[in-house]
Amino acid sequence: MNDNRNNLTGEVLAYEAIHGAGGAVVHLDPAASGAGDKEYDEDDVEYFAGERNVLDAEEETEAITESTPKASGGPALWEPTTGQDSVNSEAAPKPVGMYPHARRVGDLLYLSGVGPRQPGTNAIPGGPISDEHGKPLNYDIKAQTQAVVDNITRILEEAGGSIEDVLDVTSFLVDMDRDFSGYNEVWANTLGKVGPTRTTLAIRALPTPIAVEMKVIAKAPKSN
């Protein structure tokens, strides 16, 4: 046989002439010296199974659209979601997901996590903690913390309140050992004078290359 097939041996079991040709019944055995030890239909075949979930991906793209530009070194930015109780401010940085800047529930305002990014430019005061390749950079935790407080103030003012309305803060630091002292100093000069309760947690990372974020609960201003 050819180089791509087995070498075969066997015997003719029956033969009969048919219209100038012939038909035979044969018994074949592959020889041990066969080139590939394959049956006739066992040649290697390349095939393409296609990409999975293509239609699902297109539907999701049509249903949910992200805004641009992306946060420096982070995910795409979104327009804040709107609703009857939502509070959003053009003076605050855009969210990195589908949520509002704040939501009013009864006599309270619940703010989404607030970082130091600047509205419009997405610049990070004090510099990002890493570059676009993840390489660590030097940064100023005091400048970042002050920018967080400023963004909180803008959101509260959009709701008709002020920084004086803050009741409770949960802070997140990506490097507690390095940054707690500087963060604490800015706190003492700003929110510390207001007197909210506070919890400070160490975490591994935040969605954008920032060192600090705060989650705030505040008194909601009385409706007119």
Rank of each mutant, 00 (worst) to 15 (best):
M1G: 08
M1T: 10
N2I: 02
D3M: 02
D3N: 10
N4M: 01
R5I: 03
R5F: 04
Y15T: 14
E16Q: 13
I18L: 15
I18K: 09
I18N: 07
H19T: 12
G20T: 02
G20C: 00
G22W: 06
A24Y: 07
V26D: 06
L28A: 09
L28D: 02
D29Q: 13
D29G: 00
A31H: 10
G36P: 02
G36E: 09
D37Q: 11
K38V: 05
Y40T: 03
D41N: 15
E42R: 08
E42Q: 13
E42W: 05
D43M: 09
D43N: 13
D43E: 13
D44P: 07
Y47P: 01
Y47F: 12
F48V: 11
F48S: 12
E51C: 03
R52L: 12
N53I: 03
L55I: 13
D56A: 15
T61W: 14
T61V: 14
I64Q: 13
E66C: 05
K70E: 15
S72R: 13
S72E: 13
G73Q: 09
L77T: 15
W78L: 04
E79A: 14
E79P: 00
E79Y: 10
Q84P: 12
N88L: 14
S89C: 12
A92K: 09
A92H: 14
P93D: 11
M98V: 06
M98I: 04
R104G: 00
V105E: 14
V105M: 11
L109V: 05
L111A: 02
L111P: 00
S112I: 00
S112T: 09
G113Q: 05
G113V: 03
P116R: 04
P116K: 06
P116I: 05
R117S: 11
Q118V: 09
Q118W: 01
G120Q: 04
G120D: 08
N122M: 08
I124P: 01
P125V: 01
I129C: 04
I129R: 05
S130E: 07
E132F: 01
H133Q: 08
H133D: 14
P136T: 05
L137P: 06
A143D: 03
A143H: 02
A143R: 00
Q144I: 00
Q146Y: 02
A147T: 00
V148A: 01
D150F: 04
N151D: 14
N151P: 12
I152D: 01
T153A: 15
R154Y: 09
I155F: 08
E158M: 10
A159V: 12
I163S: 11
D165P: 00
V166D: 02
D168R: 12
D168P: 01
D168N: 03
V169P: 02
F172R: 09
L173V: 07
V174N: 07
D175S: 13
M176N: 08
M176D: 11
D179R: 04
D179Y: 02
F180C: 01
S181P: 00
S181G: 02
Y183A: 05
N184K: 07
N184T: 14
T190Q: 04
G192T: 09
V194C: 11
G195D: 04
P196Y: 01
P196A: 08
T199W: 06
T200M: 14
L201Y: 08
A202C: 10
A205K: 15
L206R: 02
L206E: 11
L206W: 08
L206H: 00
P209N: 10
I210G: 01
I210H: 01
I210D: 11
I210Q: 05
E213S: 12
M214R: 04
V216Q: 04
A218H: 06
K219E: 15
A220M: 14
